[in-house]
């Protein structure tokens, strides 16, 4: 699992993100409005978001180990008063499979420890098992919306759930525990070998 960092989305990132918005796998999984939107409209929307919409929408660029762009994350439905927002993200095609989980964790960590968010809303269309198996998706989801959208030729069911502070703590504990187990196994193997 490689290391992912976040930085603010800039004008120079617009081309890469526009490409992602137009990519069929992305459209099937999130939204296909980009297909019917002209280039300059997509460009103008993203420019406006960077310049004027900090209060309602923020986009971040996800960077891999040597700072190359591996994808994007963005927060919408921001309720600053309630410290809650919805997190969406997309990984560039050539980085899929390796960065998903790390990217989500980096985004969640940033939202909590820097933007002081407490409740993060996740939305996934039910067929999208890029990150989680269908079973774990069904287990996590709290809301199931049939006919939520029609993307790339199919009706999609949307699943929603929230990550709250204690979910994060549980998650961190699990990660810490896995590290301890791993360290334990390595030590045990080292003792046998010596």
């Amino acid at each position: 699992m490689s290391f992912v960092t976040l930085r603010h989305f800039t004008l120079d990132d617009i081309a890469a993100r526009t490409g992602l918005l137009r990519e069929t796998r992305f459209q099937a999984n999130l939204t296909d409005f980009a297909v019917s939107t002209a280039d300059d409209a997509l460009l103008a929307n993203q420019r406006r978001t960077i310049a004027e919409e900090h209060h309602v929408k923020q986009i971040f660029t996800l960077c891999g180990p040597n700072d190359e762009t591996v994808g994007f994350a963005w927060i919408t439905t921001i309720d600053w008063r309630s410290q809650s927002c919805e997190l969406s993200f997309g990984v560039l095609p050539k980085f899929r499979g390796g960065f998903g989980i790390t990217a989500v964790r980096a985004a969640l960590h940033y939202l909590r420890s820097e933007l002081n968010m407490q409740v993060i809303i996740n939305q996934v269309l039910d067929h999208n098992t890029m990150l989680q198996s269908a079973e774990s998706l069904a287990a996590a989801s709290r809301v199931r919306c049939e006919f939520d959208s029609y993307t790339v030729g199919q009706w999609r069911t949307a699943m929603f759930w929230t990550d709250t502070e204690d979910d994060a703590r549980i998650q961190d504990l699990k990660v810490a525990q896995r590290r301890r187990d791993l360290a334990e196994r390595i030590r045990a193997k080292a003792n046998q070998a010596s």
């Binding site: 309720d79 008063r81 309630s82 809650s84 409740v119 809303i121 989801s141 709290r142 809301v143 199931r144 919306c145 049939e146 006919f147 929603f160 759930w161 929230t162 709250t164």
Partner: peptide, 24 residues
């Protein structure tokens, strides 16, 4: 009733969820 998105909004100093309803 499609479920409740928990603790996403504050009202009167407490956290509440939003209950999703729909008709197809």
């Amino acid at each position: 009733e499609e479920g409740t998105l928990a603790s996403v909004v504050r009202h009167g100093g407490q956290r509440y969820g939003y209950v999703f309803f729909a008709r197809i």
